[in-house]
């Protein structure tokens, strides 16, 4: 017999599906909600439904948006001749927060990993190719910003091979040391990469 009423138990199970949330945290969140007044819980529930109803992937770049197309694709000031390809929306937000990039994006929706059942067809790669061939004005540069790990690197290479015939400049974001970091504490692989990829000042 569970210590909680059935509906509470079910709510806990739902919270446990969230990434990074275990049984303990799920219980805490549910107990927190039970303590709140009704308006808070209602607003919360409505917000979730509203969010789900209005937010959808941008048909151009697959960033999330509640408009017809996302604010980046819709903007007049963005440089539409550069596309930065990222794995997930979270990566896009990270690059956006640097304020250093004024081009547009393309969110792949993951990385290729046959081992985990993700294939090129499961990602928005065809859409990217389509987008490039149809683009007006012409795309000048594709910046590949997948994560620097086994799957990210292989996906990047796959993209390069796919894009090569289109004859546009393909670049990858640099890898190396974190700003404000300390050589002594850098992991050896990153440091090795930083030395390999050094450049004249």
């Amino acid at each position: 017999m569970s210590a909680y009423p059935k509906v509470v138990e079910e709510a806990i199970d739902l919270f446990r599906r969230f990434p990074g949330i275990g049984t303990k945290t799920a219980k805490r969140l549910v107990l927190f909600l039970l303590k709140q007044d009704k308006t808070f819980v209602e607003t919360f529930a409505n917000k979730l439904t509203e969010m789900k109803e209005t937010v959808h992937p941008c048909p151009i770049c697959f960033n999330i948006t509640d408009e017809k197309i996302c604010h980046i694709c819709a903007s007049d000031t963005r440089d539409k001749t550069k596309i930065c390809v990222v794995e997930e929306t979270g990566d896009l937000i990270a690059i956006e927060s640097t304020g250093k990039y004024n081009g547009v994006y393309h969110v792949l929706g993951g990385v290729i990993s046959p081992m985990r059942g993700v294939e090129p067809g499961d990602l928005h790669i065809d859409e990217l190719l389509n987008r490039i061939t149809k683009a007006e004005p012409r795309i000048e540069e594709i910046i590949i910003a997948t994560n620097p790990n086994v799957e990210g690197d292989t996906t990047a290479l796959y993209l390069e091979n796919k894009l090569k015939p289109l004859g546009i400049l393909i670049t990858r974001i640099a890898r190396g040391l974190p700003q404000g970091g300390d050589l002594k504490y850098a992991d050896s692989k990153t440091l090795a990469k930083a030395i390999e990829n050094r450049r004249p000042e």
Partner: peptide, 16 residues
């Protein structure tokens, strides 16, 4: 026969 990426993904794997 399920692979959509065809040989191009294999090329990428081989290069890596």
């Amino acid at each position: 026969g399920e692979a959509v990426g065809g040989e191009i993904y294999l090329d990428a794997l081989d290069e890596r």
